[in-house]
């Protein structure tokens, strides 16, 4: 006797499960940082509003566009490898790296501008949050770029195919997490008041 059952297929997480545990931990840390910023601001509204205006909003917006676009390129890289197009995958990953590098250059420019004015972590509570939050994120961008570069090297060596590309999905997931965090950081620190 046969029976017909309706079964909803549950998709597997893209990439390695370990990276998702790591992403979860990272998001928790950033989440606490964001909430701490919002709470501290509620106790120092005038100071936070005043110093927020000293930030370069244009660079913040351009950096957001760079990370979003870089994330989009990584999506294209994953699509390419699923079609077994290794060459296109590598090219999209290089494009994503350029986006990340652009972010780092602009952020470095922002930091040097602030440091030349004598601003540092102990200047005031706003700058303590601004510098520590964005620098913590800055380090994640660097780590993400190192991961993407390692993937490119492996892809060039022929390690990935249309059927075997877990490594690319793993790196892609981490890079999207870096983007996701900045998506919240930008309006929180640069815009809302």
């Amino acid at each position: 006797m046969t029976s017909t059952t309706t079964k909803t297929e549950t998709k597997l997480l893209p990439g390695d499960l370990a990276i998702w545990m790591f992403i979860f931990m990272e998001l928790l840390v950033f989440g606490i940082f964001f909430i701490a910023y919002a709470v501290m601001r509620s106790q120092n509204i005038e100071m936070f509003n005043h110093y927020q205006l000293t930030l370069n909003r244009e660079l913040g917006a351009i950096n957001t566009l760079l990370l979003i676009t870089s994330s989009y390129f990584v999506v294209r890289a994953v699509q390419a490898i699923r079609s077994n197009n290794v060459q296109a995958c590598i090219q999209w990953l290089y494009a994503a790296l350029v986006g990340g590098a652009g972010f780092l250059v602009l952020k470095t420019f922002e930091y040097s501008d602030k440091f030349s004015e004598g601003i540092n972590l102990s200047t005031n509570t706003f700058y303590m949050f601004y510098l520590s939050l964005t620098m913590f994120h800055f380090l994640h961008v660097i780590l993400g770029m190192v991961i993407l570069f390692a993937i490119i090297i492996k892809a060039r060596a022929g390690a990935y195919t249309g059927k075997n590309h877990t490594g690319i999905e793993t790196g892609a997931s981490y890079w999207h997490m870096v983007d996701l965090v900045w998506i919240i950081l930008f309006p929180l620190v640069y815009i809302i008041r």
Binding site: K11, L12, P14, F24, L28, F34, H176, I184
Partner: peptide
Amino acid sequence: FMELKGVSLIWQLIMYGWLSAVCFAI
């Protein structure tokens, strides 16, 4: 982008839950 559409409910809850909780707290 992260392709969590259709994955197990627990991971969707974690990710969307994190996003919602942070935005709600702010």
